[in-house]
Structures are given as structure tokens and as C-alpha cells.
């Protein structure tokens, strides 16, 4: 079996390297204009967010609607680090570390959200996570130190297509490993039937905790990337509207599918850019899309399906 896997794995790493090189070369070469590069970076950031939310909502079947809170915490933590803590000259080199710290800060917040998820599911957890999102936003608005409602600025523009691509690849590859591991089997079991999962020896508490931590971590990383792309963040960017956008991307692409997340993030981001001439009416499209999706195709485009290269590395399942 190992020999069978070999070509596929090496193909993926080859493709990843190629993508990274492209991400380095393309913006520098001037083939793509800066606007397109910017949109590509947004697509990448949204991919990370969607993947992270899909871990909780799609694979684990919990219902988190406050993911923008994690993103906000990651964004503020990373920004504080680059603006106040690190010397300016170091920041380009320390950027990956900064993002990791932002992710870790979000993961700590994930702990707070994970605990109610041990006790509540469905609607109840939705309320808790919604409240979490609002708490994060309100706290940020009331923290004068980081600018309060005016927002926080001064971050250098460290995010570029290379870093975004790299983090998308890291997220995809790690999550792919995770969802096909014991851990992934465990959270899928939680989705299908939590009591039965517990009965068959799945440590549901620990798995839920891990899932929330991992999910929050990547959302925090995306927040850090976002902050250093826009060079300005304010609490309003991390409101429930942002969480709804993420939900749309997850359910558009498809729950329980990595490919779906990538697809959903791409389609939604590009669609919102195409609709930019509509002005305020653009914000009607997202919610409307969400409602229509829920009614007509609740599993999304790729619900529980996967592209070949993202599938499990096994010859054939005996189902």
C-alpha cells in the first residue's frame, strides 16, 4: 500500500511547490494586476476560514455561528505583535510566527467556546457561539488601548500571495491528515451520533475540545493574514455579518468536504467582487443565497464528497 501511495503524495508536494513558486513569481512578474492579486489573497484567506469552520460545522456537525470572533482575536493579537512588540525590521521574517501567535490566541478563546459545546448542541450552541461573537466584538469596541470602535492600524503590509498560498496549503494538508485520522473518524462519529460515539470509546469531550482549538487556530491565522493585508482592522469587521459570510461559504461549497470549502470560498468571494457595482444591494445577495441554498441544496455543491487528490490515501474502502 505504501508504494501505491507514493506517487500521489509526491504529486501533491510537487503541485504545492509549483503553486508556491507561482505565488511568488506571478505578482512580481506583473502578469496579474494588483487588483487580481488582492482578490486572490482574499480568496485564500476565505479558504482558510471556510476550511476551519467546516471542521466544526461540517465534519463535527456542531453549529458554530461565531467564527468571526476567533478571526478577530487572531487579527488583533497578530497586529499587536507586529505594531507594538516586535521591532519593525524583524516583522517580515517573524511573520509566520506572528500568525501562529495570532492563531494560538484564537485557540485559547476556542477553549471558552468548547466548554459550552460539551453541554449543549444545536440551537443552544448556536446561541452560545453567537453570544461569543458579540462579546468579542463588544470587548474590542470597549478596549480603548487598541483603538476601540475606531479600529487599530499601523500594521505593515506583510501579507502577500506567497504567504496566503502557503497557509492555504498548510491548512488543507493538515486538515486532510486530520479528517482521515482517528481524530477525524471520532468527530464524524460525534456528528452521526454522539451517544453511540461515546459508547464505542470515542472520547467526545477531548475530540470536541481539539476540534474547536484547531478550528479557532486556523481562523486566527486567517485573521492575522487579513489584518496584515488590509493594514487596518476594526471590531465591525468581525461582526456576525462576517460569520454569516463564512456560513454561506461552508454551506455553498458543501459540508464535510475540503474540496467544498475551497470551492465555496472561491465562488463566494469572486461573486461578491463581481457584484460590487450593485453597491449596498450586494449585501442582500449573501443572505438570500444562504436561504436559497438551505431550501434547495442544503448539502452544498460538494456535500460529503471530495476531489480525488483530497481523498483518503487508501486503495479502496470495503464499503
Amino acid at each position: 500500500m505504501a508504494t501505491l501511495n507514493k506517487p500521489k503524495t509526491s504529486l501533491i508536494s510537487l503541485a504545492s511547490v509549483l503553486l508556491l513558486v507561482l505565488a511568488l513569481v506571478l505578482p512580481a512578474s506583473g502578469v496579474l494586476n494588483p487588483y487580481v492579486v488582492q482578490i486572490l489573497m482574499y480568496v485564500g484567506i476565505n479558504m482558510i476560514l471556510t476550511l476551519s469552520l467546516n471542521l466544526v460545522n461540517g465534519y463535527m456537525g456542531e453549529f458554530s455561528v461565531g467564527h468571526a470572533g476567533f478571526m478577530g482575536i487572531g487579527a488583533y493579537a497578530a497586529s499587536i505583535l507586529t505594531v507594538w512588540v516586535l521591532p519593525r525590521a524583524w516583522t517580515p521574517w517573524a511573520f509566520p510566527l506572528v500568525l501562529v501567535v495570532g492563531g494560538l490566541a484564537a485557540a485559547v478563546a476556542g477553549l471558552i467556546v468548547a466548554f459550552p459545546s460539551f453541554r449543549t448542541r444545536g440551537d443552544y450552541l448556536a446561541i452560545v457561539t453567537l453570544a461569543f461573537n458579540m462579546i468579542v466584538k463588544s470587548v474590542l469596541e470597549n478596549l480603548e488601548v487598541v483603538g476601540g470602535p475606531r479600529g487599530f492600524l499601523g500594521m505593515p503590509r506583510l501579507t502577500n500571495l506567497f504567504w496566503v498560498t502557503a497557509w492555504v496549503l498548510i491548512t488543507v494538508l493538515i486538515l486532510r491528515r486530520l479528517v482521515y485520522s482517528n481524530f477525524g473518524r471520532g468527530i464524524t462519529a460525534i456528528r452521526e451520533d454522539e451517544v453511540a460515539a461515546n459508547l464505542t470509546g470515542v472520547d467526545t469531550r477531548r475530540l470536541k475540545l481539539y476540534a474547536f482549538l484547531i478550528s479557532a487556530f486556523f481562523a486566527g491565522v486567517a485573521g492575522g493574514l487579513f489584518a496584515h493585508l488590509l493594514q487596518f482592522i476594526n471590531p465591525r469587521s468581525f461582526s456576525i455579518i462576517k460569520s454569516t459570510d463564512m456560513l454561506v461559504m461552508v454551506y455553498l461549497g458543501g459540508v464535510g468536504s475540503l474540496a467544498g470549502s475551497l470551492l465555496g470560498a472561491t465562488i463566494f468571494t469572486v461573486l461578491m467582487e463581481v457584484l460590487r457595482p450593485l453597491g449596498l444591494w450586494r449585501w442582500v445577495v449573501g443572505p438570500l443565497l444562504l436561504v436559497l441554498l438551505m431550501i434547495f441544496r442544503p448539502k452544498g455543491i460538494m456535500g460529503f464528497k471530495e476531489w480525488k487528490w483530497l481523498r483518503e490515501e487508501k486503495v479502496a474502502s470495503s464499503q
Binding site: T244, V248, P287
Partner: peptide
């Protein structure tokens, strides 16, 4: 699904 729809309707 219904809860997500409700959120969507509200934002709409």
C-alpha cells in the same frame, strides 16, 4: 438548516 435560514432571512 432552519436556524441558518432564519439568520439569513434576518440579514436579508
Amino acid at each position: 438548516s432552519a436556524v441558518i435560514t432564519a439568520l439569513g432571512v434576518g440579514l436579508f
